[in-house]
């Protein structure tokens, strides 16, 4: 998988131009089980992605798709192997470094949206910037809201938004820090077909616009087919 050699737009984290954004080598991860052998979820994964690549990871439930996302996001640690994102070795980072790295470089979209329930749509989008201590200009937020089509719903709380709207807020929140890579875990898994299509259209449009690298874990074949690369996780390895 070769990255396109085009100048990427300005991002929250500095983009490693002319290099691969994601490099995964021989990645292993197992989970201990009470009274049994550890469950080998990832057994020597190899993969690399360039700027602007979009990768769909498919596989059966329990095949390790979410584990891969968790490792890429720095939410969990591999047992062994090499994991480099935007030139930084995630395996070598401590907890605090990982947190800082994640905040600057990685956007995550969850299947369950995971919005802060007591913050409005606008406040949810603003939150990552505030946590980073970055200037949070109103026009940036307005622009994000407009891009996800929620300008009119900016003051609504997540409880008053539909599933599709919640996911659009989650996408805006993930993109507002201008990450170098977007990780999406079943972004349409909680939505009906029509809404799911709307959300995936939005997602791909926004990613293409800024030539961002995206990894999508999905069961949705239609969504997977829109990615530039597709891999299937079977028995702990990518095929």
């Amino acid at each position: 998988m070769r990255p396109e050699k085009s100048e990427p737009p300005a991002r929250g984290g500095e983009v490693a131009v002319d290099r691969q954004i994601v490099e995964i080598e021989n990645l292993h991860k197992a989970y201990p089980q009470p009274g049994a052998e550890p469950l080998q979820v990832l057994a020597g994964i190899n993969c690399s992605l360039a700027v602007g690549d979009t990768l769909a990871v498919t596989g059966q439930s329990g095949s390790g798709k979410s584990t891969l996302i968790a490792l890429l996001a720095g939410l969990d640690r591999p047992d062994r192997g090499r994991l480099v994102v935007n030139g930084a070795d995630l395996v070598a980072m401590d907890e605090a470094q990982l947190t800082r790295f994640r905040a600057k470089n990685i956007g995550i979209v969850f299947q369950q949206f995971h919005l802060m329930p007591h913050l409005s749509a606008e406040e949810n989008i603003r939150l990552p910037l505030e946590l980073l201590g970055r200037p949070c200009r109103q026009e940036t937020i307005d622009k994000m809201l407009a891009q996800v089509g929620l300008s009119a719903r900016r003051t609504h709380l997540p409880g008053h938004l539909s599933g599709g709207e919640c996911q659009r807020v989650a996408i805006a929140r993930a993109l507002v820090v201008e990450p170098v890579i977007l990780l999406a875990d079943e972004p349409t898994g909680n939505l009906d077909v029509a809404t799911g299509r709307e959300v995936s259209n939005l997602l791909f449009a926004l990613v293409a616009k800024v030539k961002m690298t995206m990894i999508v874990v999905t069961h949705n074949q239609e969504l997977a087919e829109r990615c530039t690369h597709r891999l299937r996780l079977e028995q702990g390895v990518l095929r």
Binding site: A73, L75, E95, A96, T99, R100, R102, A103, K104, I108, H114, L115, M116, P117, L127, P128, L131, L132, R173, V177
Partner: peptide
């Protein structure tokens, strides 16, 4: 707890 996890996923440190 869930909101705390969300904050952490958005880059909030444990100290925060």
């Amino acid at each position: 707890l869930k909101e705390t996890a969300i904050l952490r996923s958005l880059g909030a440190s444990r100290r925060q």
